[in-house]
Design a protein around this nucleic acid. Structure first.
Length: 821
RNA sequence: GCGGGCGUAGCCGAAUUGGUACAGGCGCAUGCUUUAGGAGCAUGUGGGGCAACCCGUGGAGGUUCGAGUCCUCUCGCCCGCACCA
């Protein structure tokens, strides 16, 4: 059947030519043109780890296809890329290999860029951002100073999470299941002076903003909401017997105050040493030592065991005037609320376990009825805590909510408590005791203490070449030429901060830099940023649901308050794509289950790889890579080639004929479907619609259809529909169809609603809800006519078996249901 | 434990508001091509039954003319949070 005069589809021969053409034509080269509608399309920029695999490409192919589509829809599309280039892997690799991070990073970027290119993934490279370049990180330092000026960057001594493997501290967000997010090592606690960003000041704004993000996945919003963990309650003072200050507790259930039978302080609570009685001192000290040396994992593993010791001190319940013992226990966290709680074992499952374990009394204060019904025996029954206050003095018999309101009012009236809101969110710890990051622009002066580096002295450059140490310490600490400086205020000798910034600082504003392009005078250009922001479509992995996406939102809110940007949410629409799995787990270098882009390009061509990634499954779900599936896509593209370029097609007169009108209608159905699917990021169903169109074109030719003008129109539109997804093939076909210019810049096909209409539809006929026949009827017909036609059907008559039709349900052009009962 | 989501063919998966269950791909079967192989192309393909028909979206009920879709219960799987007072 192969006609030697017709060239076959040879992707390796055509693809490089079209990539050169796009570069020459400036695909994705943009300027801020107020006359055109803008579209900021962004994929999360990666860490430059060198060779990519097809798992990485899912994100890039989605982004590239979507950006190309938006160009065809007439938008001024900003489609930039960059490298989140600071961070531990390069430094750790350098310690192993001796190659400086700067060099290995550059090499890795070149490798990755080459692979993006051969897959036809194009970007506005003139706006590339590489975070480890001084012309980027100097603006990190500049922004740090702005945060410092606004009181949003501060230093404090705090018990922090220390990763002994990575030799650095970690932010709370970077502890995943009690382990370091990067290397999986259980962190230990250390008391260190560290730099923080005051993200807690924005807790409510970060929550409120989520409500407006209607084009974000629900699960990401839920995760962020839980992470921020807002809870309303009251702070409340318990006087301590003896000459001690009162202990302040936070509770959301002040209505249970009559049930307090003990109090608990966190081991790190500052009052613990002061109030501990001499007789208990040894036991308390031993307990503090034990909790201190335990890792998070060890504390988690003893989850159900509520350890603690009595301090020997007593507090007084201001409502009952009862004496209650004060304990220390590590189930109370120093970093949440006030670091102290009132123990209400009759209503709180944790307090119940603690009381049971240590023989403390349990009193019923919440009951299902307005009178006591007896203490619940299991923790399960606790926590179902809404009911009526009982054993609660003047408040007994009141519903929980009312008791809460009244007791809170009394506490406020007596000046011993106030309504407060507490968050689970902690301030963002940004110090890292590592070399490969942005130096924090601070100087320590013996006379002036913490002194910010003046803007004019920026950047504080990271020494490009350093001697790494076997003990894992930050090499900067041991470089006098870096550390020794003078105080910007008094000129006397002073020391530089040697900690560097968390790399999540770098990624919190890179999109603003991309919206600006190269600029020596400022971190970003407000005019350009106002034009491009917010990001209209942001695509990346779910692993950043909290970390990066929360930090970036925080940054933009701060910059909004500073008048530097005009939006306070950076990402209008977010898409979190699933991973590509192979042999059951995520593709990765270490597992050796990656598929290399080079292999795909050489074996099938870049377009096959791209379409397969789009077709493999629902974009938001993980998908298993299947080598045979790739071949199926390759067959599809070969078929498209034969159809469009004009190879002969075997006639099949035995098949149901496809008319020219059928073909054109199918085209418009597919235009409609693909357009809606792409807008909704349903690339898998968009690809299957394109396959259907090709199958219909095949059937048309098989049943004797000819390649006339209508056919040519269909072929041209198929080419345009393919352009964002199989861009090389589409360009080649476009040229072979005699079209001028690049299909990349052609207009996206429009649906002709009139052509979607059918003259005749197949009406489903049901009898008592069961499908009995399908009959052709004129489209848009009325019920009476359809009913009459349905009754003519032999199959319908057989089903009715003479029974009268009691009523009929009619859905125009879809079905008629004849009901006999 | 709390929160979110998901169970459809041998496999991956489609199905506006409740209206023809299974589009598209893989696999499989058959055929074509003088094709050296597991290549290429085409056709067919949920199960049962000779047929008329019957059955079929994890399971059991329910609402409805009509349920993959809505409701109740139940089983299984995945993800997130996890002593947050």
């Amino acid at each position: 059947m192969a006609n030697t005069a017709i060239p076959t589809y040879d992707p390796q021969a055509i693809e490089p030519r079209w990539r050169a053409a796009w570069q020459k034509a400036g695909l994705f080269r943009v300027t801020e043109d107020p006359a055109k509608p803008k579209f900021f399309n962004l994929v999360m920029f990666p860490y430059p780890s060198g060779p990519l695999h097809m798992g990485h490409f899912r994100n890039y192919v989605f982004g590239d296809a979507f950006a190309r589509y938006k160009v065809m829809r007439g938008f001024n599309v900003l489609n930039p890329f960059g490298w989140d280039a600071f961070g531990l892997p390069a430094e750790n690799a350098a310690i192993q290999s001796g190659i400086p991070p700067r060099i290995s990073t550059e090499q890795n970027i070149e490798i990755s860029k080459g692979e993006l290119n051969i897959m036809g993934v194009m970007y506005a490279w003139d706006r590339e951002v590489t975070t480890c370049n001084p012309d980027y990180y100097r603006w990190n330092q500049w922004l740090f100073l702005k945060f410092f000026e606004r009181g949003l960057a501060y230093k404090k001594l705090a018990p922090v999470n220390w990763c002994p493997k990575d030799n650095t501290v970690l932010a709370n967000e970077q502890i995943v299941n009690g382990r370091c997010w990067r290397c999986g090592t259980p962190p230990t606690k250390r008391d260190l002076e560290q730099w923080f960003f005051k993200i807690t000041a924005y807790a409510d704004r970060l929550l409120e903003g989520l409500k407006r993000l209607d084009r974000w996945p629900e699960r990401v919003k839920v995760m962020q909401t839980n992470w921020i963990g807002r809870s309303e309650g009251a702070e409340f003072d318990f006087p301590v017997e003896g000459n001690h200050p009162p202990v302040r507790v936070f509770t959301t259930r002040l209505d249970t105050i009559y049930g307090v039978t003990f109090m608990v302080l966190a081991p790190e609570h500052p009052l613990v040493p002061a109030i501990t009685a001499p007789a208990q001192r040894a036991a308390v000290v031993a307990y503090l030592e034990k909790t201190r040396t335990e890792t998070e994992v060890e504390r988690l593993s003893t989850e159900h065991e509520k350890t603690g010791v009595f301090t020997g001190a007593y507090a007084r319940n201001p409502f009952t005037n009862e004496q209650v013992p004060i304990w220390v226990a590590d189930y109370v966290l120093a970093t949440y609320g006030t670091g102290a709680i009132m123990g209400v074992p009759g209503n709180d499952a944790r307090d119940f376990h603690f009381a049971t374990q240590h023989g403390l009394p349990i009193r019923e204060v919440v009951s299902a009825k307005p009178e006591p019904i007896g203490i619940p025996k299991t923790a399960l029954e606790l926590g179902l805590a809404e009911g009526f206050a009982v054993n609660s003095g003047p408040y007994r018999g009141l519903p929980s909510a009312e008791a809460l309101a009244r007791i809170t009012a009394e506490a406020e009236g007596r000046g011993i408590g106030t309504r407060t809101v507490t968050y689970r969110l902690r301030d963002w710890l940004i110090s890292r005791q590592r070399y490969w990051g942005t130096p924090i622009p601070i100087v320590y002066c013996p006379d002036h203490g913490i002194v910010p580096v003046p803007e004019a002295d920026l950047p504080i450059e990271l020494p490009p070449f350093v001697q790494f140490r076997s003990d894992g310490q930050n090499p900067l600490m041991h470089m006098p030429e870096f550390v020794d400086t003078i105080c910007p205020r008094c000129g006397k000798p002073a020391k530089r901060e040697t900690d560097t910034m968390d790399t999540f600082v770098d990624s919190s504003w890179y999109f603003l830099r991309m919206a600006t392009g190269p600029d020596d005078t400022q971190p970003f250009d407000k005019r350009k940023v106002d034009y491009w922001m917010p990001v209209d479509q942001y695509t990346g992995g779910i692993e950043h649901a909290i970390l990066h996406l929360l930090y970036a939102r925080f940054f933009v809110k701060v910059l909004f308050d500073a008048g530097m940007v005009s939006v306070d949410e950076p990402f209008a629409a977010l898409f979190s794509q699933g991973m590509i799995l192979r042999f059951g787990s995520a593709m990765s270098k270490s597992k050796g289950n990656g598929v290399e882009p080079n292999y795909i390009v050489e074996a099938y061509g870049a377009d096959t790889g791209r379409i397969y990634e789009l077709f493999i499954g629902p974009p938001e779900l993980d998908a298993e890579w299947n080598d045979r599936g790739v071949e199926g896509v390759a067959k599809f593209l070969h078929r498209v080639w034969r159809l469009v370029v004009g190879d002969s097609i075997e006639a099949r007169p035995d098949l149901a004929p496809v008319s020219s009108a059928d073909l054109v209608r199918k085209l418009h159905e597919v235009i409609d479907k693909v357009t809606r699917d792409v807008e909704g990021f349903h690339f898998n169903t968009a690809m299957s619609a394109l396959m259907e169109l090709a199958n219909t074109m095949q059937s048309y030719l098989q049943s004797g259809g000819v390649r006339d003008a209508a056919w040519d129109g269909v072929a041209r539109d198929l080419t345009r529909l393919l352009a964002p997804f199989a861009p090389h093939l589409a360009e080649e076909l476009w040229t072979r169809q005699g079209q001028k210019g690049l299909v990349a810049f052609a207009a996206w096909p429009e649906v002709d609603q009139a052509l979607l209409k059918r003259d005749t539809v197949l009406l489903v006929v049901e009898v008592d809800g069961k499908v009995r026949d399908r009959i052709p009827v004129p489209a848009g017909g009325d019920q009476a006519r359809a009913h009459a036609r349905a009754l003519e059907s032999e199959k319908v008559q057989r089903s009715l078996a003479g029974r009268p039709v009691a009523r009929a349900i009619y859905v125009q052009d879809r079905l008629i249901n004849l009901v006999t009962r």
